[in-house]
């Protein structure tokens, strides 16, 4: 089984993002970059499926040369090889159409993507890709907190592959549902699907020798003119100082009359 898995280079969610004074862009200088956490879950799931069913795990990133680091991180976890599509930042639709080209070339049985990237939170690329390919999609793949031991959790994929289908437990409004999609398919990962493994030191060294193919986006012959543009960035409003109340009665009164939550 061949699995294509995507990894986006995003700003570190643990660092405060700074914005240019005119609100036109995010200041990337001095910013730390990490793999999109949902994509790390996607890589982990792909590796578990590979362990269960064999095959190959190919990691794709789209972005500047720096994104090689995020591909290497996935290779250090155990993925087999990488493809970096060299490009400026794209909108979700262009990302999906780039992936259509790569899918045509690689012919994977499964594409696993993070449900969204933590930088723009668009949550669209997986769905668009499935649409363009005419493939079924299983978004927000999750796993119930069962009776697995820690060791078992570290082994078993949440996505069950059998008889040419993928059984996927999905997080939906109000609960969980399980769907079966025929392969090939697109799966996007939610937070509870798995806990990504740590890249071991020998894994990091092995990753240095793995192939990362660079593909200039111009060579794919697609129009990547953005359909969605970032118009303005703004800081969240600063939190106002709280007030101290003398007793419970005053608190209840304020909740009732000022906050109007009671």
């Amino acid at each position: 089984m061949k699995i294509l898995v995507t990894v986006k280079r995003v700003t570190d969610y643990e660092r405060k993002v700074k914005i240019t004074p005119d609100g036109s862009a995010i200041i990337t200088e001095g910013m730390n970059f990490v793999p999109n956490p949902f994509d790390e879950i996607a890589v982990e799931e792909a590796l578990r499926l590979q362990k269960a069913h064999g095959g190959e795990v190919v990691v794709v990133s789209i972005g500047a040369k720096d994104a090689t680091t995020q591909i290497r991180q996935a290779l250090a976890m155990g993925a087999d090889r990488g493809i970096l599509v060299l490009s400026d930042e794209l909108d979700s639709d262009a990302v999906a159409r780039v992936l259509v080209k790569l899918v045509a070339e690689e012919k994977p049985d499964l594409v696993i993507m993070g449900k969204q990237a933590t930088d723009d939170d668009a949550n669209q690329a997986g769905q668009l890709l499935a649409g363009y390919l005419g493939w079924p999609q299983a978004t927000f793949a999750s796993k119930t907190e069962g009776l697995e031991s820690e060791a078992e959790k570290a082994q078993k994929p949440g996505v069950v592959i059998e008889n040419g289908e993928a059984l996927v437990l999905r997080e939906v409004d109000g609960g969980l549902e399980t769907i079966a999609v025929t392969l090939p398919a697109v799966v996007t990962t939610d937070l509870r699907l798995n806990h990504p493994r740590f890249a071991s030191l020998p894994g990091i060294m092995k990753a240095k020798k793995k192939e990362v193919k660079e593909v200039p986006i111009a060579s794919l012959g697609i129009d990547v003119t953005p359909k969605v543009k970032n118009v303005k960035f703004a800081e969240p409003p600063t939190r106002k100082a709280g007030v101290k109340v003398a007793d419970v009665a005053e608190l209840v009164a304020k909740l009732k009359n000022e906050a109007k939550v009671l």
Binding site: T68, Q73, L201, I204
Partner: peptide, 9 residues
């Protein structure tokens, strides 16, 4: 790069 990845992991 690999040294930074070791440190971060």
């Amino acid at each position: 790069e690999d040294e930074r990845l070791v440190r971060d992991s």
